[in-house]
């Protein structure tokens, strides 16, 4: 087994309105090709943990390692470039840039990465849209798409740079059950067909049941699901 993401004793505090420990010595390992679900009561710290894992939040104690690189104490420019190359993020609210077409939205992270020519990026983006079943929407302004379509475009965008890991904070939380299922099926297929590593926060029991592994949090601690690495 090949670990893609590793944390060692990650703790985090909030100081407003009073000092309070939101994450308590989190030890977590996620392996390549794994589809992991993070569950827990509202307010237990799932989103906070996701922000730490996504490198957007650097204000924590402990160590974070993704794709073999230690990310503790790195500067913001390094972390931006790292996110661009190694992490794809899917949000609960679809968060596409409204003035751009679906295709342009998918292309942007790849243009930022600058590894391929614009033509290559475009054909790769169309491929990703095809996998997500929304290639026919490619040239529409993203603000003109339905919620389900937007979320699929957002997943295509998360995939464009072939990231080591995809993170989603309630990626189906804002979709109806039909679209939830669709998105889940797609994520599932990604792990099985392409060995894509996925971490997703969810409240949906059915969704969680069908994943490879469920990690449960309570009150800032991991209380279940980390056994195989313990």
């Amino acid at each position: 087994m090949e670990p893609v993401l590793l944390t060692r004793k990650i703790s985090k505090y909030f100081y407003e309105p009073e000092k309070f420990q939101v994450l308590k010595e989190i030890d977590l390992t996620v392996n390549k090709g794994e589809f992991m679900c993070l569950m827990g009561k509202s307010g237990c710290g799932k989103s906070t943990l996701m922000y730490v894992l996504s490198t957007m939040d650097t204000d924590f104690d402990g160590e974070l390692e993704i794709a073999g690189q230690s990310l503790t104490g790195r500067d913001q420019n390094f972390l931006s470039a790292f996110r661009n190359k190694h992490i794809g993020f899917i949000f609960q609210f679809h968060y596409l840039l409204p003035e751009f077409t679906a295709l342009q939205n998918v292309m942007l992270p790849a243009q930022k990465l600058g590894k391929y020519s614009k033509e290559e990026i475009e054909s790769r983006a169309i491929d990703k849209l095809r996998i997500l079943g929304v290639s026919d929407q490619a040239l529409k302004l993203s603000s003109k798409l339905s919620g389900g379509q937007q979320q699929r475009v957002a997943i295509a965008r998360a995939l464009i740079n072939d990231p080591d890991i995809i993170m989603g904070d309630e990626p189906t939380g804002n979709l109806d059950s039909y679209n939830s299922n669709l998105v889940f099926d797609i994520l599932h297929e990604l792990t099985h067909t392409y060995r894509q590593t996925i971490i997703a926060v969810t409240h949906d029991e059915d969704f969680a049941k069908r994943s490879d592994r469920v990690v449960e949090m309570s009150d800032g601690r991991i209380v279940r699901g980390d056994s195989e690495n313990a």
Partner: peptide, 16 residues
């Protein structure tokens, strides 16, 4: 604001 947040999440740096 939302766009800026998303750009940063996608890996655009502050200077971008």
């Amino acid at each position: 604001m939302k766009d800026i947040a998303i750009l940063k999440a996608m890996g655009f740096a502050g200077k971008d």
